[in-house]
């Protein structure tokens, strides 16, 4: 990659391992993952169910701690941070889009989106400005005062995306953001994410089962049984061509239903 010379590393995982269970019954889910994510990258993570995708994402996103290995985000070793520091770090630097939205039922769309900056000391006017920019990109401006139960799944997911982006994080983690959406809503959301990635330079890491979704990425990492099986770079390829490549790797990898499209 010729880009790597000009881009700095946002995230660097070295030999990350994660095990669950008791001493007598240890299940190693991540078995030594090495991964470097550059600033402005849009990385997809694919792999069969149970291969450890969510676990990897949680560990990288500091929601969970690795059993072994080091993770540096913007050159900060998150293993050395205390829980409170980690929380602050997450709130400031990271954004999350969850598979099942995780919106707070009792808050309106606007209140949900503004949550990550609710403790900051940003001026109300600037916040409003920020909110308008993001919601207009996401196309949910009109929904500001609606409650989650009043909007569709796609709109919820976009709200969730708005919440992930409002505080201008340096990196966004998305766990199957299109999992519950129909193909139209899914491609809308992916298009917006691609836009945000390109125009605002936000680094994105996205877990997905869907080859179509991962074809929006710059790079796709394939996981199998807790190790990185292979990596694909999109380079200058068209989305269609990249999609074909992804399908090929998936066919070899097995597990997921290839005939999704």
């Amino acid at each position: 990659m010729n880009q790597s010379t000009t881009q700095s590393t946002v995230l660097h995982a070295q030999n990350v391992r994660k095990s669950y269970g008791t001493r007598s019954n240890v299940q190693q889910v991540l078995k030594g993952i090495n991964l470097r994510v550059l600033e402005g990258e849009f990385v997809g993570i694919m792999g069969p169910s149970g291969s450890g995708k969510t676990t990897l994402l949680n560990v990288l996103a500091t929601i969970d701690r690795p059993t072994e290995g080091s993770i540096l985000i913007q050159n900060v070793d998150i293993a050395k941070m205390k829980d409170a520091e980690l929380s602050l770090f997450r709130r400031d630097k990271l954004g999350f889009i969850f598979q099942d939205y995780n919106l707070l039922d009792t808050l309106t769309v606007k209140e949900n989106i503004l949550l990550p900056i609710s403790l900051g000391k940003i001026k109300k006017k600037d916040v409003e400005q920020q909110f308008h920019t993001i919601t207009s990109i996401l196309g949910i401006e009109e929904l500001a005062h609606k409650y989650p139960h009043e909007i569709s799944g796609g709109q919820k997911q976009r709200t969730s995306a708005g919440r992930a982006l409002i505080h201008k994080p340096s990196m966004v983690f998305a766990d199957e953001p299109t999992g519950a959406l129909d193909s139209k809503s899914a491609s809308d959301l992916l298009g917006t994410m691609e836009d945000i990635n390109k125009k605002q330079g936000v680094t994105i890491m996205m877990v997905t089962h869907d080859p179509v979704a991962s074809s929006y990425c710059n790079r796709v990492v394939f996981l199998k049984d807790g190790t990185i099986y292979s990596e694909l770079y999109r380079g200058d390829k068209t989305r269609q061509a990249f999609f074909k490549d992804i399908l090929n790797v998936q066919a070899v990898l097995g597990g997921d239903n290839v005939d999704a499209i």
Partner: peptide, 16 residues
Amino acid sequence: KQSYKTLRQLGFDVKD
């Protein structure tokens, strides 16, 4: 519980 979980994931600590 789910709300608190989400808030924790978003980076709010127990004290907040």
